[in-house]
């Protein structure tokens, strides 16, 4: 198995970053992480090519579980205690139960959405590689990082990133950066 090492490119311009990602894709190189201080649809488009987030399946599952739970909770409760029957409504009365079912749909769907978000983001991610914890990436810079690039490919990747307009390309152990305080 090839030895690997970290390669990190820092960009101060969005179009340079996009050029870098585009060149990596055209060269068939994978295994990189793009970092940005904000969500830019241009980055999503070039990396994901319109593929939607898988979080949507969590949301759908949560919402279906929610509406089912709402129906079962209300109808089974009233079936078990049928004497609670205000206003002559049927024991299993869909209209008043629809309120509870709606609330459960929203609640379970939202909680599943939050869990799906954390899962797909790899959060909580305190153990994530330190290389990705560069304060410049939450400030004003963009980045492309290879956590485990094959050593044999290092020169090729480094040249490609430098050529795309990166202001800094480093290899090997990371350096900790401080962002100036307010």
């Amino acid at each position: 198995m090839d030895q690997t090492q970290r390669i990190k490119a820092v960009y101060s311009h969005l179009d340079s970053l996009l050029t870098g990602v585009d060149r990596l894709k055209k060269a068939g190189i994978t295994g990189y992480t793009v970092q940005a201080p904000l969500p830019r649809h241009e980055i999503e488009e070039i990396v994901y090519e319109g593929k939607p987030s898988p979080v949507r399946w969590w949301v759908l599952t949560g919402a279906l579980v929610g509406i089912t739970t709402g129906f079962l909770l209300t109808s089974l409760t009233h079936s078990a205690w049928p004497m609670i029957n205000p206003g002559g409504k049927p024991v299993v009365a869909i209209v008043p139960f629809a309120v509870i079912m709606f609330e459960c749909t929203i609640l379970f769907g939202s909680l599943a959405n939050g869990l799906g978000f954390l899962f797909h983001c790899g959060l909580p991610g305190y153990w994530l590689d330190k290389s990705l914890c560069d304060p410049r990436m939450t400030d004003a810079s963009f980045g492309i990082t290879f956590l485990e690039a094959p050593v044999s490919d290092t020169d090729r990747i480094t040249k490609l990133l430098e050529g795309s307009g990166a202001i800094e390309v480093t290899t090997g152990p990371d350096t900790f950066y401080e962002v100036p305080n307010a």
């Binding site: 987030s53 979080v55 959405n113 983001c121 990705l132 914890c133």
Partner: peptide, 30 residues
């Protein structure tokens, strides 16, 4: 929670945020 601003995180964030908004909108009216 260890946020790094990676493309995977932003992709999930934007997807998730839209769904939260879509759920919260009828909720606020209800």
């Amino acid at each position: 929670v260890g946020w790094r601003g990676t493309h995977v995180q932003w992709h999930s964030y934007m997807g998730s945020y839209g769904f939260f908004a879509a759920f919260a909108a009828p909720l606020v009216l209800s």
